[in-house]
Amino acid sequence: MTNLISTEPKAAAPPARRRLTLDWRRDIIYVGFVAVVIVFAFLLRDQGFVSTTSVMNILRQTAIVTVVAVGMTYVIAAAEIDLSVGSVAGLASVVTAMTVSHFGLIPGIIAGLAVGAAIGAVNGALVAFVKIPSFLVTLAMMGIAFGIAQWSTASAPQPILDMTYNNMFGGGSIGPIPVLIIWMLLAVVLGAVVLKKMPFGRQVLATGANKVAAEYSGIATRWIRFRVMVICSIGAALAGMLYAGRLQSGRFQWGQGDEMNAIAAVILGGTALSGGRGSVVGTFFGALLMATINYGLILGGLDTSQQQIIRGIIIVLAVALARQK
């Protein structure tokens, strides 16, 4: 490590070119992903693991969780957490479904996103300005949003008959590519560009790494934390709308448990749970890794309970290997 700091001040002049080296600990997710694909390709060659169908299935399976996980990457990179995303997705699916049925397509889309923005604003205000830890705020919001969604629909699914909506948000495809995958790629690209290339992204990482130093550097850290909570909730609401489109109905249970999958994807993707380090592309691969494992295990004939055990082991392994000394 000492050679990083030379005694030559001049050496700083050329902008450092990012070398294409593999940092084992940093890039564990990509190594792990490739390893898992190779293992499955070998073990499951007779079940047709290597095929376009498989790729599409895996991508489709992971799409909605990835949308949630992109927003979660911001929250965790800012050293916060959001446990309410699953419930927000459920509530957004219900609100969208009801609004589409009563007022039409556009109001429905707006209403769904507005649910996310409103809950995110409440979460954000409580976290950033009332200074309640995000874990507690969103734990409470998880119950509240779930309860509202269940209560307002009397636990009944809300069918969506508007096929434009269902095609746009889930069921349809553009050419050979399902719209779900397009939504997912949009979220990943937008999320990655903002986090990596825009001042806001840098400020999120700075706030997550050291809130005090970021504040002293003139960053409005409270607004940063507020905004990441809003972004995450809007992502969750979009995920709920995708559930609604795919399943042609809104229901309070859509998205239940997604918070854990999203958090797992983010952490697998190399974002530090303590904040300050984060990658949306890593998150994408984290989600993809989990979906691939699931798919492989299903092809391999394992049942849900066995899948859960193996998935748990892989998460612990990946995080342990990636951990900094």
């Binding site: 700091i5 030559e8 001040p9 050329p14 450092a16």
Partner: peptide, 30 residues
């Protein structure tokens, strides 16, 4: 920034100007 994005070229020229001006001894600003 250039548009809405952080301009890496502007960043590295600012950084190397500051490193020179303050004689910060660092081989690799990253």
């Amino acid at each position: 920034t250039k548009g809405p994005f952080v301009d890496e070229r502007a960043v590295s020229s600012l950084v190397s100007r500051l490193i020179d001006a303050f004689a910060i001894k660092v081989a690799d600003p990253s």
